Lab assay of single mutants.
Amino acid sequence: EDYYQILGVPRNASQKEIKKAYYQLAKKYHPDTNKDDPKAKEKFSQLAEAYEVLSDEVKRKQYDA
């Protein structure tokens, strides 16, 4: 799945936009606030993985290549 789609940001998003999108979605899908939703944990880990790659310039360049 596309990391940009997961975070809901365009491919040319700035680091600030990526961070903002991640924090909004992380708050929304955090397992502690969605105890009754088994998919929230999965969504949250996808968000974390996408953010880890896109927030790191080197990893992001490799991902975009």
Score class of each variant (00 low, 15 high):
Lys61Phe: 05
Glu52His: 07
Ala48Gly: 09
Ile6Arg: 10
Glu57Asn: 06
Tyr4Pro: 00
Thr33Asn: 13
Tyr23Lys: 13
Lys19Leu: 14
Ala26His: 15
Lys16His: 15
Asp37Glu: 05
Leu47Val: 12
Gln15Pro: 13
Asp36Gly: 12
His30Met: 08
Ala26Lys: 13
Asp56Gln: 02
Val9Cys: 05
Lys43Phe: 13
Asn34Ile: 12
Glu42Arg: 11
Tyr29His: 07
Pro10Arg: 11
Leu47Trp: 03
Tyr22Lys: 01
Glu1Met: 15
Asp2Arg: 04
Ser55Phe: 06
Val53Asn: 03
Ser14Trp: 03
Asp37Met: 04
Lys27Trp: 07
Arg11Trp: 08
Lys28Ile: 12
Ala21Trp: 03
Glu57Trp: 14
Glu42Ser: 09
Ile6Leu: 13
Asn12Cys: 14
Lys41Ile: 13
Lys20Thr: 14
Ala40Phe: 08
Tyr22Pro: 00
Gln15Asp: 10
Arg60Ile: 01
Ala50Ile: 11
Asn12Lys: 08
Gln62Cys: 10
Gln24Phe: 15
Glu17Trp: 11
Gln5Tyr: 13
Tyr51Ile: 04
Glu17Ser: 08
Gln46Ile: 11
Tyr22Thr: 01
Asn34Ala: 10
Ser55Met: 06
Glu52Met: 12
Ile6Lys: 04
Val53Phe: 04
Lys35Cys: 09
Glu52Arg: 09
Lys28His: 08
Ser45Glu: 09
Ile18Thr: 01
Ala13Arg: 01
Phe44Arg: 07
Pro31Tyr: 09
Tyr4Gly: 00
Leu47Asp: 00
Pro31Met: 09
Val53Glu: 03
Lys28Cys: 09
Pro31Ile: 06
Lys28Met: 12
Asp37Thr: 05
Glu52Phe: 08
Leu7His: 01
Lys61Arg: 12
Ala40Glu: 05
Tyr51Gly: 02
Lys27His: 10
Lys43Met: 11
Glu57Leu: 07
Lys27Leu: 13
Pro31Gln: 11
Lys28Val: 10
Tyr23Gly: 08
Leu47Glu: 02
Ser45Lys: 13
Lys28Pro: 04
Lys16Val: 13
Pro31Cys: 09
Ser55Lys: 09
Asp2Met: 04
Val53Ser: 03
Asp64Phe: 02
Gly8Arg: 10
Ala50Gln: 00
Asp56Ile: 03
Asp36Val: 05
Tyr22Met: 04
Tyr3Thr: 01
Lys27Gln: 13
Ser14Pro: 06
Lys20Phe: 14
Ala50Glu: 00
Pro10Asp: 10
Ser14Gln: 06
Glu42Met: 14
Lys61Met: 07
Pro10Asn: 10
Val58Pro: 03
Val53Met: 04
Lys28Tyr: 08
Tyr22Arg: 01
Lys16Ser: 15
Lys16Glu: 15
Lys16Phe: 15
His30Arg: 07
Ile6Pro: 00
Ala50Leu: 03
